[in-house]
Write a protein that binds this DNA or RNA. Structure first.
Length: 256
DNA sequence: ATGTCGATCGCTGATCGA
């Protein structure tokens, strides 16, 4: 079973890339972020045609998340949940669903803009709420994947070396990431030896992709019962090389 | 450091968020 996370930065614009990628990789479960589309505009029919069921939590202009599951291999998704229970939030950043016997969460963590800003404070509050909720969610669903754009680069090796104490790499953000690890989760990517300087996001500006100036901020965290099933975890840079790409590359974990 | 995108409002460009 292959589970991926991909911040598409507008589902409308990236739909052709997504459909090509689904056909090429046959990924079973895809967690999408930054749909930037309302639920009424979600391309249900196109994805159905490609063999995928979709659960989504969208809004106009900003945010928006979805989970796609390949019907042939996964059957029906169940127990769909939107947003963090008990955390009042206008922003659509979370969707969870059970696919076969795995609880899957697609999460778009707040960007935070700049350390110390109001948006940064919101990011930390959101991270607290997520962590509290996940503790319960893991107790209910021991086989769980937290997939998404975390907007946090956990370690210095996940970052172009010039970045220090800025947004995405600051100590409070990394402490929050460690808090998720503290729930017993494992970063699937770091279970394996990986090439150096492998990132999942590159700024559109300053030829960042060509210069490989980027961050590893898209992650798949798995709970202990899934750790032993993880066979690989890779970042697929191919879609980032296409015309009109998302600024993020998909990350894929393969479970036995 | 900000040179790029994408969406919106509402008009063919400015503004915002990332």
């Amino acid at each position: 079973m292959k589970i991926a996370t991909w911040n598409v930065n507008s589902l409308k614009v990236r739909l052709p890339h997504l459909l090509d990628w689904l056909a090429a990789t046959q990924t079973d479960v895809v967690c999408l972020q930054e749909l930037k589309c309302e639920d009424k505009s979600f391309p249900v029919a196109e994805l159905e045609e490609a063999g995928y069921q979709a659960a989504f939590n969208g809004q106009k202009t900003y945010n928006g998340v979805a989970i796609l599951s390949r019907k042939e291999t996964c059957g029906e998704m169940t127990d769909v949940q939107q947003n963090i229970p008990g955390f009042a939030d206008e922003q659509r950043r979370i969707i969870a669903a059970t696919v076969k016997d795995v609880r899957v969460i697609s999460a778009y963590f707040p960007n935070g803009q700049a350390v110390g800003s109001e948006k940064f404070e919101y990011k930390l509050r959101w991270l607290n709420a997520l962590t509290d909720w996940l503790r319960d969610e893991i107790a209910l669903h021991p086989r769980l994947v937290l997939a998404g754009d975390y907007n946090i680069a956990p370690e210095d090796r996940d970052v172009t070396p010039e970045w220090h104490d800025e947004i995405h790499v600051s100590v409070p953000e990394r402490d929050a990431f460690k808090g998720l690890i503290g729930l017993g989760m494992t970063d699937a990517f770091r279970m394996f030896e990986q090439p150096a300087k492998l990132y999942s996001w590159w700024d559109y500006r300053m030829m960042a992709f060509r210069r490989n100036v980027g961050l590893r901020i898209d992650h798949l965290l798995v709970t202990p019962p899934l750790v032993e099933l993880v066979r690989s975890c890779v970042i697929d840079k191919a879609p980032r090389k296409l015309e009109r790409p998302s600024d993020h590359a998909p990350v894929i974990v393969e479970l036995a």
